[in-house]
Nucleic acid binder design. Structure first.
Lengths: 327, 327
DNA sequence: CTGAAAGCGCTTACAG
DNA sequence: CTGAAAGCGCTTACAG
């Protein structure tokens, strides 16, 4: 099935068929009808490989996600999709599971010209490796930001948000504040930890206990919290750098017989749905999830549609503290 | 950048370059080296569009997910990815949000020859429409099954699982069992509701209250449960057809001052992580999430790699009842 | 073991 | 308004 067959059936040239396919105005109504009839009769579908090879334009954006099961990632992707759709682009999602071999394989879609650009959410520490593969292709990094990096990025000021959380906890009288963090390969993990440390120092608090969750999952959050509860000196507050970890921690704290927030206050990060239905609901930092995705797409499209290289920009979007009953 | 340039630089023909690229054995070692050197020197990356156009084979599978934020879907996708990777296929994820226009757009990748086959998780009621677009392309439907359908499928026996849940609830002395269901456009919703109704009738229970959640989200689950609690005759047990809905219900029941399971027992479905960290943890039906995904891929590959049309098969995988403290 | 040539299915100047 | 022809970047018989 090809334009050839349509052309033959409609009694016109392939050029005319192509014009109809692309809705160019210069086709006589009569011919257009004949072509349309032939297309319908044969249920013809254009071969995208051929079209995109010819036009060197795909209208597709690659989004590499380290874990689609992470609700924060899912929320960002939602924003990405909306903005892409608005601009006539399609989104291809690749789940990398933070696996470099997989990322490399995904990125062949970029170097192989099957997509016009890529949005990543990887750890900053991976960026140099990715850079080698991505080269000069249009690229925006989401929710992870390094001021020194030459990669466009959209994120929030994680340090400031974490500092705000600690201040709130201290304000409410808490003195032994523990941190459940994740992988320090991520810049955001470093920044949130930095915010935590900054304000402990500022308030002259000596208690300073950090535990690192293996993965960004409920169960890892639970496990991390349990290990915290076993400490000789128990915390009276826990700041978890993601709502998912915090939700796991709620389980650990409650099932261990402590009450939230009286015995142990709990604050999460991200502002995803789960934070609203833990018992009690979680105080958290609301990230502008969808806006991060939207902004990433618009940055990416500006790169794609510009002929010359643009100056790197790093967007920091506003965040919001949401007070609920867990603190 | 193309094989032409590599050929010129290496001093061989494009045919030889292509042979090196595809690792064919018939290339003299010396020439191979020259080509490899040229590839490295120019950082050449083959154009996948051209290659796939020529070979009519992409090594890519499309997976259409109605909602990537749904942990059950994410778990199935994980299985899909593993099996695909094992067989040298790449996965492209499309998030349809159950939107038909989006699905149609995604499926252009199939008809446009950019992927070799598709795995869907859509409502059975959508299948006839999808069928029109997908036609005879390799296709497997996941976690949603209609014995009459001519589409290959992998799922579980939802009716039997739901019946088992109701029996367990009755066994524990519950008499007013409510159901939180989702969209009846899904076959699994119908089957689970059928199982619920079957066993109420069997046990001669007249209480029969069903509420439909707007979406498969925590908040919808909470909302649905709250409406149940407002009923003149309150339920003493709630069966939610997904753990996500059940987790939302846990919040509603607890915050309304009832204890679980004494006042109201709660059972979910799916067996995703969240079921382990609600307070109390959820009794649920464990689906063979990853296996569903794996099996779907192997069915799909058998279609792709077979020359003639295969007879339709509908796989039903085993499920498991997991007793926890919510019932 | 290698190269010249054809062709995958499109789009796009170009000439009319 | 239309068609013949070139070409996007590959791979693959075919002949040597």
């Amino acid at each position: 099935m090809s334009v050839q067959r349509i052309a033959k059936l409609a009694g016109v040239s392939v050029a005319t068929v192509s014009r109809v396919l692309n809705d160019l105005p210069s086709v006589k109504a009569q011919n257009k009808e004949k072509v349309l009839a032939a297309i319908a009769a044969l249920n013809y579908q254009p071969n995208l490989l051929a079209r995109q090879l010819r036009t060197a334009r795909t209208g597709m954006l690659l989004v590499m996600v380290s874990n689609i099961a992470n609700p924060f990632c899912a929320a960002v992707v939602k924003g990405v999709e909306k903005e892409a759709e608005k601009n006539g682009y399609r989104i291809l999602l690749c789940n990398t599971e933070s696996d470099f071999a997989r990322s490399r394989s995904c990125l062949q879609l970029l170097s192989g010209k099957m997509v016009d650009g890529v949005i990543t959410m990887d750890a900053v520490s991976e960026l140099p490796e990715l850079q080698k593969i991505i080269g000069a292709f249009p690229w925006v990094q989401c929710a992870e930001y390094d001021p020194e990096s030459s990669v466009f990025s959209v994120s929030i000021d994680d340090t400031a948000a974490a500092e705000f959380v600690i201040d709130k906890l201290v304000e409410s009288g808490k003195k032994r504040i523990a941190l459940i963090n994740h992988d320090l390969a991520y810049q955001y993990s470093q920044h949130r930890e930095q915010g935590y440390l900054n304000r402990l120092a500022h308030h002259g608090l000596s208690y300073r206990t950090i535990v690192y969750a293996d993965t960004l999952s409920y169960l890892s959050g639970k496990k991390a919290a349990l290990s915290l509860l076993k400490n000789a000196e128990r915390p009276d507050a826990i700041f978890a750098i993601s709502d998912v970890l915090a939700a796991g921690a709620v389980n650990a704290v409650t099932e261990s017989g402590f009450s939230i927030p009286q015995d142990i206050a709990l604050i999460g990060f991200d502002g995803v749905d789960i934070s609203q239905i833990t018992v009690p609901p979680l105080t958290t930092i609301q990230q502008p999830n969808e806006d991060i995705g939207r902004k990433a797409v618009s940055l990416l499209l500006s790169q794609i549609e510009s002929d010359n290289a643009l100056d790197v920009v790093h967007y920091l979007l506003p965040w919001q503290f949401i007070q609920r009953q867990s603190s």
